[in-house]
Each structure stands twice: as structure tokens, then as C-alpha cells.
Design a protein around this nucleic acid. Structure first.
Lengths: 129, 129
DNA sequence: CTTGACCTTCCAGTGGCTGGAAGCCCCATA
DNA sequence: TATGGGGCTTCCAGCCACTGGAAGGTCAAG
């Protein structure tokens, strides 16, 4: 399989796949002409990575998940712990964004938004709100 | 005012303030010894930036907000538009994170999390879920 | 034989800082 | 007057996870 095919299968851009090779996440074989030759297994690994990344796992998390994935004697507790950390992180981010949203939408509501210069948003930013 | 003092006032690290000078957000005067000499106005500007950044505005947004802030004849509608764009972005991010959270927490619930190797989380990541 | 799609490597840039080295400057204390 | 410690300066490198682009090799079709 050439890079474009595996890119299509995994949903990752070719550039990203090359990058993943650079940082050692995949190690595709090489054909005689120097082209990367991806196996089925490489394809599965890349799809795994794409899915894990889309769920917000960092590259380091992915490295850990991959090695757990390939370790037949892993404990599912280890995976669960990683996933739970991610969940907490997501919760923290949601909370933070909700806070921003509350503040900003209050400011937006208070700003009349016409062609006059007085603006509660700028006043708040300047610390006079 | 030296950099450390204005850092304390604005809540920004000194490093960040130097960086903001680099990219042209502030232009503090210089004392004879080469030290940056911040005016009250510089301090206010930096506090403005700190607040805007903490509300999630990008540096480019901040540049626009600053110039609106300093433009006595600005229309508040322009500011409101920027803030509304940010709100939409925040909403999109929250929605995305809620989606991730739903998927991940479902996976976590289904994983028994003990010392056995079978794990629905990895199965899902591998596309067999 | 040419065209055009594909592949390769390598370098640089994104955003928004952050860390660290090397070297002034300034003030207080011994 | 030496010295110590903090603060200040510049500059370079690195973070994360790619992404864009240049320069050039390879392959299949017409």
C-alpha cells in the first residue's frame, strides 16, 4: 500500500503519516524505489491513531495506548485510567469554556452594538466594567 | 515602571510582555540603561490584553480590539461582532467536547477496568467496537 | 517521449509563548 | 572596594502537532 491509499483508509493526511513515522509511531517498510510500503497492520495502527487523536488523546497518550493495544497481557485498568484522565481534562475544558461563554455573552448582551462608540465590552476589557 | 512591576500589575509574565513588544502590541519607551520604561498607559494596555486573552481572544483579535479601544470614534457594533464570533467559536468547541465526553464516558463505563486484557476502549479505537 | 500524478526529503512556519544561556546594571552590605 | 544577588537585556531553541512548499525522483498512460 502506498501512502495515499493508507491515508484514505485511515483518514489521516499523508503529511501526518510521514510525521508519525518521524516520531516513531509507525515504521512502514520501504519498497525498492524508496516508497513507503504499508502493511494491513500499519493501516490498522494508523486508523487506531486517527481515532484516538480524534478523541483528544495526545500523541504521548497515543503512544501509550498503542503499546497497550499491542500488549496481549495488558490490564484493561491501565487503559481505563488513561481514558479517565482524558475525561477529566475534557470536563475541565468544558467548565472553563462555559465560564468564558457566560462572561462574554453577558458583555455582548449589554453592548447595544450600533454606530456609537460607547461599548461595555471594551470597558470591561479595560478593567472599568 | 520596569518590566517586573508592570508584569505584576497586568498579571502577565515578563517574558510574555517582551514577546508582545516583539510582535508590536506594545511599544514601551527605553531608559538610558536600555531597560524598558513602561508608562501608565502601557500598563493599562497590557492589562487590557491580559483580560482579552483570558477571554480567549486570539492575538489578532486583540490587535483589532486594541485599535478599536484606542479609536474614539469606533462603532460598538464592530466590537460586538468580534465578541459574537468568539462566542460562536466557544459554542462550537463546547459542542465538540461534549461529543468527545459522551463517547469516552460510554467507553469508560463499558470497560471493567481490572487486570484482564479485554478492553472495549481499545476495541473501539481499533474500529472493532 | 511527454504529461501528470504520485512519491521522496528537507526546511520553514503556525500560535503563543516559555526556558535558558550569556552578559550588563544596580544596590546593599562587609 | 569587592562581592553578592537580584533585575534587566538579547538571542536562540523548543513546545505541540502538524502543514506548506520547494526541489527532485518514479511510474503508468497516451
Amino acid at each position: 500500500m502506498n501512502i495515499k491509499e493508507v491515508a484514505g483508509l485511515s483518514g489521516l493526511p499523508a503529511k501526518t503519516i510521514r510525521y508519525y513515522e518521524d516520531i516513531g509511531l509507525v515504521r512502514p517498510a520501504r519498497a525498492d524505489n524508496g516508497y513507503r510500503a504499508f502493511s494491513e497492520r500499519d493501516g490498522a495502527k494508523l486508523a487506531f491513531l486517527a481515532r484516538a487523536r480524534s478523541l483528544g488523546f495526545s500523541i504521548d497518550d497515543c503512544r501509550a495506548l498503542l503499546s497497550l493495544y499491542e500488549d496481549r497481557s495488558r490490564a484493561s485498568a491501565d487503559v481505563k485510567a488513561l481514558a479517565e484522565d482524558r475525561l477529566e481534562e475534557i470536563d475541565r475544558k468544558i467548565t472553563e469554556l462555559e465560564g468564558l461563554k457566560a462572561t462574554l455573552s453577558q458583555l455582548v448582551r449589554r453592548c447595544h452594538g450600533d454606530d456609537r462608540p460607547d461599548c461595555p465590552i471594551l470597558e470591561d476589557l479595560a478593567g472599568q466594567g
